[in-house]
Design a protein around this nucleic acid. Structure first.
Lengths: 328, 328
DNA sequence: AAGCGAATTGGAACCGGTTCCGTAAATATG
DNA sequence: CATATTTACGGAACCGGTTCCAATTCGCTT
């Protein structure tokens, strides 16, 4: 049976409070320090975290709410967060919501109930319910991947990335373009990337661009592209809003015997590792997810300690020029 | 400020114990039940989990220790576990060890300290230190993906999968084979798959098979294959121990202008979703990771409740015949 | 040796629940 | 109607820590 602090005190012949002080770096004489040290080593005593947290009214834990686990972006962001929090002597609790927004809200309340000290939220969209939950629980929240004026946010530079990618494909001579995006409910992925891209197109002029929309799922993108490519497409390139979509489109093109990039160029967004080994290697935008996770961890810890953090932090990105875009 | 059970009791004009009984389904009269219900609704009272766990001496949480987060196998297993545990009214705590075995050991002790009720362990190898940690903390542990005689285990049928895949490629006429595996320290992936494959080869006879070894990383596999394929390889097929390795090899083959499956066939193990969209689609073994996660969750809960669970549960698998293997 | 401030230490209260136990009230039994 | 049996409820102890406060001890000064 595991020992309590009272046991340790009794064995060492001191009071509970003295042992507690020893553990928390209060003033203890050298003699008693040694005695207690000895007893703790012998008994293998470890303090009960519940009792500690009960008194402290807070657990030194950061909760992270994610929409899914099986995504490159999520898992790499999580790894960055985990790494950094560990360095800062903080633990992380992951809550997966399986893309169910109600679960996001529930998760906020549930984490609050568990006296989590801060929340990192990876959400596609912030609703009034989110705001209400954050308001009423009064827990520091850092939003990652999306921006909201009322919440501290860490975002990727989707607009500039879209613009730079647009410029790149236009510079390579493409003038008849297709953009395969996602729902505009997702501001970062559905709107900002497209806006950046659109600005590049408008600056250049004398372009045609057709906009399409599919889901985030690779299989949906593939089906959609299969339909799209079966009828003559008036475009030399399909710019896809995510790497997954791009992979789905590439597959569809292969299935229809369309050569990439010979007959059709393709780009993505994300920088998933698999985009490097597919053939042809996908030209895409690399987002530093792991790095973002680290910064997110630093920021949420600052927020928890009531230190200043800028309302919005923008991460950098990198254009990966590979093989899936041809000169035109 | 959040209310305590004492506040609720005072406002409702009853004793703490009565409120507690109400919350935990003890005998309470209809009148007081309504009164308390009313007060709780008005105040938005939620019990403090620390105080509850302090008394209960256990938190109703299952800890899951994983070597990494950015893997198809891990994330899908986690999703399955999470889903099932949620259904059973249980929470999950994920600990990522970044493939550091010391962290695995630490994690076991740390989870014990937090009075976690059970642990699901995804580990490549079980050492004496693991056993000691499990022994001393005395927490129910379920090992997933590997088998150990002293620990309840849930495994994939790697041996039969290796055998069936071996039979398949041999049936397709291949006789000069290469097997690109991983370290034998990983019994499931490094040993069992290879053994099954080898048995198929031996049954058939009149075959040559060369065994090679690389790491789990796609980039390493690619480099390794680049070396391997540059000199003439006396094989018509490379059987890879994981899908990631297979993807790396496919990339290397593309880079060297080797046509798949025309000049060289390739297979993997895993059934990662991306293997379906690469070109050619990879012939591989699909393991039901998510399903395995569900069963793991059920089993660990049973173990926590001291119900009987068989020492080893073997999951099924499925051979996915796709495009990366040619007749020979 | 007396006086004084600082360093240690023990005791008790407290964090917010759960549960045991005893009593009072309600209901059933004869 | 008296007694036996349930049922409802309050009081107090307890879970295992932390922290405040008062008391004691210690080292140093004059």
């Amino acid at each position: 049976m595991s020992k309590t602090i009272a046991d340790i005190a009794r064995i060492a012949g001191v009071a509970k409070s003295t042992v507690s002080r020893y553990l928390n770096g209060g003033s203890v004489s050298v003699a008693t320090r040694h005695k207690i040290e000895q007893v703790i080593k012998e008994t293998g005593y470890v303090p009960n975290t519940f009792a500690q947290s009960l008194k402290a009214k807070t657990a030194n834990i950061i909760g992270t709410i994610v929409p899914r686990l099986d995504s490159f972006a999520t898992s790499h962001t999580l790894m960055g967060i985990d790494d950094q929090l560990r360095n800062q002597g903080c633990r992380m609790l992951i809550t997966n919501t399986s893309q169910d927004m109600n679960r996001e809200i529930e998760a906020i309340y549930e984490l609050a109930r568990q006296k989590i000290s801060g929340i990192i939220l990876l959400a596609a969209r912030i609703t009034d319910e989110h705001l209400e939950a954050i308001e009423t629980t009064n827990i520091p929240v850092l939003l990652v991947g999306q921006q909201h004026e009322q919440i501290h946010s860490l975002i990727h530079n989707d607009y500039d990335a879209g613009y730079e990618l647009g410029r790149y494909v236009l510079d390579r001579g493409h003038r008849r373009l297709a953009y395969l995006g996602v729902t505009e409910q997702d501001i970062a992925v559905g709107v900002r990337r497209k806006q950046g891209f659109t600005r590049a197109v408008e600056e250049t002029g004398a372009c045609t661009v057709a906009y399409y929309e599919t889901s985030f799922r690779m299989s949906d993108a593939r089906q959609y592209a299969l339909q799209l490519l079966q009828q003559p497409l008036d475009a030399t390139i399909i710019v896809c809003a995510t790497d997954n979509i791009a992979l789905g489109v590439m597959k569809a093109a292969h299935e229809l015997g369309i050569e990439i990039p010979g007959q059709l160029s393709i780009t993505g967004f994300g920088g998933y590792d698999v985009t490097e080994v597919v053939h042809p290697a996908l030209t895409t935008i690399r987002y530093p997810y792991q790095e973002a996770g680290k910064i997110a961890a630093q920021d949420i810890v600052k927020l928890v300690h009531r230190q200043h953090v800028q309302m919005v932090t923008v991460m950098d990105y990198e254009l990966l020029q590979r093989e899936s875009v041809d000169k035109c």
